[in-house]
């Protein structure tokens, strides 16, 4: 009997230990998330978009754009606002992986109700295998449930007073470097296709069902990038979209239509586009989504004054940058 009591006592102690640990983890997690939300300059590059989107007023974003660096260099939410009054946000990260896409979407849906989710397809092409995948998956799961793992580094700016400022407009980055792409046509027609990793398609299924539950439309887009796309990938993506009845917009086949000039519009020899390229892509993209989806024009609406102000600032900045870029093209 005594033995039994001892055992119960010990088990109780173990449970208590882990209960306190759990409480501390959740408590500190929400504390760190709050601190990070208050000042997103405390957060370093990759984690910024996740914090920034949580700072947006509830239910104010209609279009959520997800993806890797191609997403935040190609599409400018402010340009969309100026032209159509659409509210969009880019939840992109450099080298975003599909489970990160999923978790950003899930976090966003906690206080936003977008009508359209746009996924830049480069994340669908990024598969990892074996233990590395397992590791990433565990890490992402852990960081989702206990954000302390994601934001733990804020001790440094808090303690040492350093900040990591970064200029972005609803996730879009103004990039004004010009490094031309010179290798010519990269979408050479072929019947071959690559294989999408089952890891990616599994997560996509989760993303799709999450969107269906919330009555959100999904659009896959491939933004122009000679380094990252070719016809084999296009075939695979097109087939995947058809099989899952998802809308798919490939802009690599429409480079001419978009009026992309690789001499002036490339940021880094065909990997990303610069501001000039982004303007052309966004122009086409805006036309495309407004003609297909029922999106509201929020210009003049109450509660969107912040957008007006940011848009003005954006216009001024881009005008200066575009002029400088065109000047350098004329000279160079």
């Amino acid at each position: 009997m005594r033995d039994f009591k001892d055992k119960i006592k010990r088990a109780g102690k173990t449970v208590l230990f882990f209960a306190i640990l759990f409480a501390l983890l959740t408590g500190m997690s929400s504390m760190l998330t709050e601190i990070s939300k208050k000042n997103d300059n405390l957060i370093q590059s990759r984690n910024k978009s996740l914090i920034k989107i949580q700072k947006e007023p509830p239910n104010s974003i209609d279009v959520l754009i997800l993806g890797d660096s191609l997403s935040y260099t190609s599409i400018s939410p402010m340009q969309l606002w100026n032209r159509y009054g659409i509210t969009s946000f880019i939840g992109g990260q450099s080298g975003q992986k599909i489970y990160e896409t999923y978790h950003i979407l899930k976090t966003t849906l906690e206080n936003q109700s977008p009508k359209l989710v746009v996924i830049e397809t480069d994340v669908l092409l990024r598969g990892r295998t074996g233990l590395g995948r397992l590791k990433d998956k565990l890490e992402e799961k852990g960081s989702y449930y206990f954000p302390i793992f994601r934001y733990h580094n804020v001790w440094k700016p808090l303690l040492m007073g350093e900040e990591y400022a970064e200029e972005s407009y609803k996730g879009f980055m103004l990039r004004d470097t010009i490094q031309p792409y010179k290798k010519g046509e990269y979408m050479k027609k072929t019947g071959e296709k690559i294989q999408l990793s089952p890891f990616v398609t599994d997560y996509m299924e989760q993303i799709i069902s999450l969107c269906r539950e919330n009555d959100i439309k999904i659009l896959l887009i491939s933004t122009p990038s000679p380094v990252n796309y070719n016809y084999k990938k296009y075939n695979a993506l097109k087939e995947y979209a058809q099989e899952n009845s998802l809308d798919y917009l490939d802009m690599n086949l429409k480079v001419k239509k978009l009026d992309i000039d690789w001499k002036s519009d490339s940021l880094d020899k065909g990997d990303h586009v610069n501001l000039l390229g982004a303007q052309k892509i966004t122009r086409y993209f805006g036309k495309y989504i407004t003609s297909r989806y029922d999106l509201t024009d929020h210009r003049g609406d109450a509660g969107f004054e912040m957008w007006e102000r940011e848009a003005k600032d954006y216009k001024k900045k881009t005008k200066k940058k575009v002029e400088a870029m065109q000047n350098s093209l004329r000279i160079g």
């Binding site: 500190m28 590059s45 984690n47 302390i148």
Partner: peptide
């Protein structure tokens, strides 16, 4: 110890 590792551990971005 646990929280020292979690907070000050050199992992994650950077």
């Amino acid at each position: 110890l646990i929280f020292a590792v979690i907070i000050f551990g050199a992992y994650g971005v950077g």
